[in-house]
Design a binder for these strands. Structure first.
Length: 285
DNA sequence: CACGAGACCTGTTCGC
DNA sequence: TGCGAACAGGTCTCGT
């Protein structure tokens, strides 16, 4: 599921006001925030969900901790505790919700973190790819991540430098979290369309101007995604609206919104890639 | 070292 | 209607 805008939306919802009630002011995802709450215990329902440490250590270390902050790095969610950092990666189908402890456990719930009040934080993840880490220093998990696309100090020249020696398709380079953190399959397709770059274009044939335009396009689509609370496709992620504004993603065979040509689909780096064959001209090397 | 295929999982949709 | 194949927001690991 989640790429940067969906993760950002979840992070913002976890920072909602601590006190929240149905019918109150409209908040993201209509659930209370978690900052300031104290953890009373945890239940691991699928062992593999916890990357580190071992379950008994995890429960011992997390119990009694108070949540100080919630933030995002790439597609990771960081929950800063008094002495530890709890990180989540939702991968394809993960989601986090905050609810009353009286609610029934749902199918695919994998990890439950109870608070000392009546609430709990639940990781639900149908495909079991999602992971949680409890570490002293987030660098243990985040080392190797590329820059944040929305960091204003990042420039097109920086991207040019990290791409221009590669023969890999730009589509695959955009998905490489070690080069740029947070872009996934939806937003890479949408950004390539906006920048009018063919997804198969090798990194080494992109000019600095191309990279400037691509960075601008990536930022534009990510920001629009955030404004629309992310994209909700199928049954996985709730509450987003960006799926109603896709220009190419999952529009195979439909008319390009610019030129009317049918959108095409290719598999690049084992991911489907949607593009307009006319607006995004294949670039010769 | 760089790159691509396979693995990890379950659920939904599509084609015959 | 049934059944298998294809596909799904991601990232590791392994082989070439």
């Amino acid at each position: 599921m989640p790429e940067l805008p969906e993760v950002e939306t979840i992070v913002r919802s976890l920072r909602n006001p601590k006190e929240w009630s149905a019918g109150g002011s409209r908040t993201l995802r209509e659930q209370p925030g978690v900052i300031g709450r104290q953890i009373s215990g945890a239940t691991l329902l699928w062992t593999h969900t916890l990357a580190t440490p071992k379950p008994d250590e995890f429960i011992k270390q997390i119990t009694g901790q108070v949540i100080q902050n919630v933030s995002r790095r790439g597609k990771f969610i960081l929950i800063t505790l008094d002495e530890w950092v709890l990180l989540f990666h939702l991968r394809m189908s993960g989601d986090l919700r905050v609810e009353d402890q009286g609610q029934p456990i749902q199918k695919h719930d994998r990890l439950i973190i109870d608070f000392t009040d009546h609430l709990r934080l639940v990781l639900n993840d149908a495909r079991k790819f999602g992971r949680a880490w409890l570490v002293k220093d987030e660098k243990e998990v985040l080392a190797g991540l590329g820059p944040e696309p929305l960091d204003p100090t990042l420039t097109g020249v920086d991207l040019f430098k990290s791409w221009h020696r590669s023969s890999r398709a730009i589509k695959a380079l955009l998905l490489d979290q070690g080069l740029l953190a947070g872009v996934g399959n939806i937003y890479s397709d949408e950004a390539l369309f906006q920048a009018k770059v063919h997804p198969l274009t090798p990194g080494k044939s992109l000019t600095e101007e191309n990279c400037d335009q691509l960075l601008y396009a990536v930022r534009t689509v990510l920001e629009e995604g955030i404004r629309k609370n992310g994209a909700s496709i199928d049954w996985v992620y709730r509450g987003g609206d960006f799926q109603n504004h896709f220009k190419v993603y999952q529009r195979t065979g439909q008319a390009c919104k610019i030129c009317g040509s049918p959108i095409e689909r290719l598999v690049i780096g084992q991911r489907s890639s949607h593009f307009c064959p006319v607006c995004q001209k294949a670039k010769k090397n």
